[in-house]
Every structure is written in structure tokens, then in C-alpha cells.
């Protein structure tokens, strides 16, 4: 029998090791798997490399993970967001490393990682600071930069519905990086608002097929990061 449902967040996260590369879904506050991130803070793994578009906000979710000192390196496109002080402070003190990647290159590197593509050429960033030190080649008269596919040990994903095979659907723009990251990690851990019976998700509507998913946790009333930040919440 195939059943990817796991009973507790603690069980789902307990084998994450120090030094792991972790992709965290979400774009800003939309689609951020807050309960899983808080579970990772409780679990305590350190020296992590985190891949996310941003650097979290307030003192919850990804910002709280960074504040807890668990992240050595962030791979992202836009760490400068209102309320991203957690990252900014550590960065200025030289206590966290940043790999800045154009947003589309970041998405494509993750897609490539998940699709078994080791590297690809793109005109994005050619002739800019972000291409310095990278191989370039001319295609159809345009300078292109060699970018490497990106894989992770773990992906922490937020979706709306799942079945026990791990088929997933998403909600509006909370989808963002989640389906791409789900493909690129050795272990993909998903929090969903509801686990539904097999067959109740129309196969035409499955966004992430269960092949990419390892563990599914039911978080039936997820708190939205935007509301936690508005209320000034601090985790833990």
C-alpha cells in the first residue's frame, strides 16, 4: 500500500541532518509552509543551506529559522523585503552567506535540478555582476551564461489538497515555487490543508503528481505568515 501521510510534523522532519540543503516553498508570505518551518526550528538542524525567493519577514517562518542561527547560507533572488531584518543583520555582520540569483534563473535552476538537467545556458544576467566568473557562450548572436541545476536534500512545501499518493493541488498565487521545488529534492515534505480520499482529485487537475512527494502532513487550519507578521508574533 502506498500511503505518504505522516501523523506529526515531528516525525516528518526528524531525519533532517545538520548541513542539509533545504528548499522552502513560498513567495514572500504567500505559500510559505510556516508550520513545517517552525517544526524545523524545534527539530534544531544547523548549518543549513536554504533556497527560497526571499529571506522571510518579521520573526516567524523563514525569518525565525534564520534568527535561530540555523542557516549558514541563503540562495535567493530578493532578500531585501520590508521586515527582512533577520537576514540583513546577520548578512551585514558576515554571519550568513548569500548567493544572489535572478528570480527566473533560480526557478529554472530548480526545474533543471528536478528534471536531471545538470546545467543550461541563458541570456539572463549576461554582461552583469551576477555573471562574473561564470562560463559564457554565444548562441544566435547572444551572449549566454552557464547556470547549474539546483537540487536539495529536503523540500518543505505548502499545498492545498493531497491524497495518500501525494498528488497535490495548490491555492491561487500560493503555488509559486512550491511545485518546482517539490521536484528537486531527495525528500519532499508537504503540509496541506486537507488530505482527501484517493480519486477525489480529478487527474486533470493534479498540479504535482505524487511521484515527487515523500511525506504529507495534514495542517488543517494553517496560519498565514502575513497574519503572524501583522500581529507581531515571534517564534518560538
Amino acid at each position: 500500500m502506498i500511503n505518504k501521510e505522516v501523523d506529526t510534523i515531528e516525525t516528518a522532519l526528524n531525519d533532517i541532518r545538520d548541513g542539509a540543503v533545504i528548499m522552502v516553498g513560498g513567495f514572500g508570505q504567500a505559500g510559505s509552509p510556516v508550520e513545517l518551518i517552525h517544526g524545523l526550528i524545534d527539530q534544531g538542524a544547523k548549518h543549513l543551506t536554504v533556497v527560497n525567493n526571499n529571506a522571510g519577514s518579521g520573526h516567524v517562518g523563514l525569518a525565525a529559522l534564520i534568527e535561530a542561527g540555523q542557516v549558514d547560507k541563503l540562495i535567493c533572488s530578493f532578500p531585501r523585503m520590508a521586515g527582512s531584518d533577520a537576514f540583513g543583520n546577520l548578512y551585514r555582520d558576515g554571519d550568513i552567506e548569500l548567493e544572489l540569483v535572478p528570480q527566473g534563473t533560480l526557478a529554472e535552476r530548480i526545474r533543471a535540478g528536478g528534471a536531471g538537467v545538470s546545467a543550461f545556458y541563458t541570456p539572463t544576467a549576461a554582461g552583469t555582476l551576477l555573471a562574473e566568473g561564470k562560463e559564457t557562450r554565444i548562441f544566435s548572436g547572444r551572449e549566454c551564461v552557464l547556470e547549474l541545476g539546483l537540487k536539495a536534500d529536503i523540500a518543505l512545501i505548502k499545498a492545498q489538497y493531497a491524497d495518500r499518493y501525494g498528488n497535490l493541488t495548490y491555492y491561487k498565487t500560493a503555488r509559486n515555487f512550491n511545485p518546482v521545488m517539490a521536484t528537486a529534492a531527495s525528500t519532499t515534505i508537504v503540509q496541506v490543508s486537507k488530505i482527501v480520499p484517493l480519486g477525489s482529485i480529478d487527474p486533470e487537475c493534479v498540479v504535482t503528481p505524487g511521484i515527487y512527494v515523500d511525506r504529507v502532513i495534514n495542517v488543517s487550519t494553517p496560519v498565514h505568515e502575513a497574519l503572524l507578521v501583522e500581529q507581531g508574533c515571534v517564534y518560538p
Binding site: 530578493f78 548569500l98 528570480q103 527566473g104 534563473t105 539572463t124 551576477l130
Partner: peptide, 20 residues
């Protein structure tokens, strides 16, 4: 970016948009 070494660098999707 203004190239200011003290500023926190952030690029978002601008480089992808101008190239695409």
C-alpha cells in the same frame, strides 16, 4: 543596485524580464 557595498543586494526578476 547602486553598487554600494554596504547595501543588501537584491535583484528579483528584473534581469530575466529585460532579457526575455
Amino acid at each position: 543596485s547602486t553598487g554600494d557595498p554596504d547595501a543588501l543586494p537584491a535583484v528579483g526578476g528584473a534581469m530575466d524580464l529585460v532579457g526575455g
